[in-house]
């Protein structure tokens, strides 16, 4: 086992949706790590050490003493965690790495394009900016199939109330015509993204989710908005 792998106990589980669960992994006593909001951890069960999965942190760097990851029932790991993981179980954790980091400077506007469970790192972005009372603008543009698929809806709405610089905008792609949802419908397109931007030079785009969504966001930002690639950060498979 590599030296930096740490066994952590599941301290709390929260069902966010019927197929999506948040695990709070408690740091062992004396554990310290230098990590940043937006990074991901890699986990595995003690009985299957060769079988690992990586998940973005849904907690932020100010949340110390634990890591939180929010996991959809997807594949064997996602199924085992969502259906069977419970408080007291232990997982091995490879500490956070990754460069999908929020630029939390006062004049910046972070436009965060998310699909499905790709919204999870943006919870960390919004939490850190809100806890630190930052003036950085953060706008999440979240694509889901139906209103039943919105992860962290209540929490993001609460963060909007606490943080005047944070906006959580949802579009649904597969609602029936008879659904009473008053919000936006259809995929994330250039027009909707452009509506959010006041000064494109101070805007940093983030995209996280399925490959098709991330590829589309990349094309949209680089080709349709003619934005330099330095202002774009991508994370496939949330």
């Amino acid at each position: 086992m590599p030296k930096n792998v740490v066994e952590m106990e599941i301290d709390e589980v929260t069902m966010e949706l019927p197929d999506t669960k948040t695990l709070r992994l408690k740091w062992p006593e004396g554990y310290e790590t230098d990590f940043k909001t937006g990074q991901f951890i890699t986990v595995y069960w003690p009985d299957t050490p060769k079988y690992k999965r990586a998940y973005s942190l849904s907690s932020c760097a100010l949340d110390t003493g634990f890591f939180e990851v929010t996991i959809k029932r997807d594949g064997k790991m996602g199924t085992r965690i969502v259906d069977w993981a419970e408080k007291g179980n232990k997982l091995f954790v490879i500490p956070p790495v990754g460069r999908f980091l929020p630029v939390l400077e006062p004049e910046k506007h972070l436009v965060c394009i998310a699909g499905g469970s790709g919204v999870t790192p943006f919870r960390g972005f919004a939490r850190e900016a809100t806890l630190r009372k930052l003036e950085t603008k953060i706008t999440i543009l979240y694509s889901v199939r139906t209103t039943e698929d919105i992860i962290f809806n209540d929490e993001f709405r609460e963060l909007e109330q606490k943080n005047p610089h944070f906006k959580f905008n949802v579009t649904c792609t597969r609602l029936s015509d008879s659904d009473p949802w008053p919000g936006r419908r259809g995929r994330i397109g250039a027009d909707w993204v452009k509506e959010q931007i006041s000064n494109i030079n101070d805007t940093i785009f983030y995209a996280c989710g399925p490959n098709a969504l991330v590829d589309n966001a990349e094309r949209l930002v680089l080709e349709e908005l003619q934005c330099p690639k330095e202002q774009l950060k991508l994370e496939k498979w949330g």
Binding site: T42, K52, R53, A54, D74, G75, K76, M77, K236, W237
Partner: peptide
């Protein structure tokens, strides 16, 4: 068939 990577299935 199904494939699962560290990131997805």
């Amino acid at each position: 068939a199904v494939v699962e990577s560290v990131k997805t299935a």
